[in-house]
Design a binder for these strands. Structure first.
Lengths: 241, 241
DNA sequence: CAGAATGTTCGACACTGTTGTACAAAAGGA
DNA sequence: TCCTTTTGTACAACAGTGTCGAACATTCTG
């Protein structure tokens, strides 16, 4: 069998564009492929012409929307189903609400939850969307996923981090800590922790977290929750294509 | 600029594979591309080797999962947001519950709803999954989308259509009618109607429906609901990439 | 089991893709 | 602002890759 060279390289290019969270320069791609710039240029122009990539005003290349996000709807549903036991056990262990969310553009999208049984509780409905920079779930994507810090950082409470360099530092701390924290940065009186959920290929697919009222969660308990969330075992994806 | 021929053809092939809801034969693809079979074979083998397509036991080719579904998470969220007014106006007009769902493998996934304000109501929670063959939303995908009749048809009520040829006939009738009907086929006492929602390219992306208790929905009202759902205007997708 | 249709392999030629260089257009520094 | 450096596109020419055609396998159909 004959492997078509230019086609392989074109597909490899699409992979590169998708892997990188940000638009890539021609030179970079040419280096990665191990070909001359002129060749890479032709490959990319072909991808653009076929509608599989786009070129922005800075002449950088990005994958087109039709390339699909990194994960499909099926992936998300599969993830949701395999995370359910973890959500339930977390709620059983803590008494607080547990959420599962995926990344959509510059927001997180809640795809599952298990509610607290206590009367005072946090309720992010499934299907709702929340910002990245001031929620534990969102910060988990910033720290462990391929999400970039959004262009605008709106203020929701007086604890919301709205300065980019402070947020970048917080993200670095999150990465070191192993779980993300929201300390009343999105809504007064709510504290959350969250951790990443990875797919079989090691890419972050979802964030899983616990949220509760600050009155029940002091600093010590917040740390305990973080350790608990991080330690929670999530059944691996059974690979049946 | 030079357009790379083999790359273009490879990308075109991926499009063909994604467009078709079912796996395609080599001959078919070769004809579509206007090349000899041997050439098409090499193209497809390259796609498979690069992990962008798969070949099943019947030697037919299908797009790989990584190609992404037909729609991305962003598409779904955008659709959900643009359908919200329609859901609300339908509930205001009928008093019954309205749902929005997308197709995931052989099930529909509820991504949004507006509840009825009446005490007796239907409640499919957002995030839940339902079968295709016995819900209005699912049948809308069978009739207007690219969904295939699932391999197994479970019985939920004594009205559930579990025979493939009867279901195929029902799907054809649905197509002619312009909206789908579930007449207590999934749950006793619940009747629903549903219509397709298309994306900017004309592909079905979601199903939008109304559900209510049979006691409030006689045959005449069911028809009215169908006409209403079908006539509901959904704001077109604003194309801002 | 024979015949038809579909898919894969093979060799050879021609045209496509790659290369190297030259030019254009931004970006960075003084 | 200018000059320098870096990045992207255009061009021509050769080599090598992709395409063709036919032969060989393999699976489907009656």
């Amino acid at each position: 069998m004959r492997v078509l060279q230019s086609l392989s390289r074109g597909l490899r290019t699409l992979d590169l564009l998708r892997e990188a969270g940000e638009p890539l320069r021609l030179t970079h791609i040419a280096d990665e492929l191990g070909v001359r710039k002129s060749n890479a240029s032709h490959i990319l122009k072909t991808l653009v012409a076929a509608g599989w990539a786009t070129q922005d005003s800075t002449r950088r290349y990005a994958p087109a929307a039709r390339c699909g996000g990194r994960h499909t709807l099926s992936d998300v549903v599969a993830c949701k189903e395999r995370c359910r036991p973890a959500l339930e056990s977390l709620v059983a262990a803590t008494g607080e609400c547990a959420h599962l969310a995926v990344l959509v553009e510059h927001r997180v999208w809640y795809v599952d939850k298990v509610e607290s049984t206590l009367p005072l509780k946090v309720d992010h409905p499934i299907g709702a969307l929340s910002p990245l920079h001031c929620t534990a779930l969102g910060k988990a994507f910033l720290a462990f996923g391929k999400a970039a810090i959004p262009p605008v950082l709106s203020r929701y409470t007086d604890r919301t981090i709205v300065e980019r360099h402070l947020l970048a530092r917080d993200v670095a701390a999150t990465r070191a800590r192993g779980f993300a924290i929201d300390n009343e940065e999105f809504a007064e009186g709510i504290r959350c922790v969250a951790r990443p959920v990875y797919d079989i290929r090691g890419d972050m697919i979802a964030a899983l977290g616990i949220s509760g009222p600050s009155v029940r969660i002091d600093d010590k308990r917040l740390e305990e929750f973080g350790a608990l969330v991080r330690a929670t075992v999530i059944v691996p994806e059974d690979h049946a294509p």
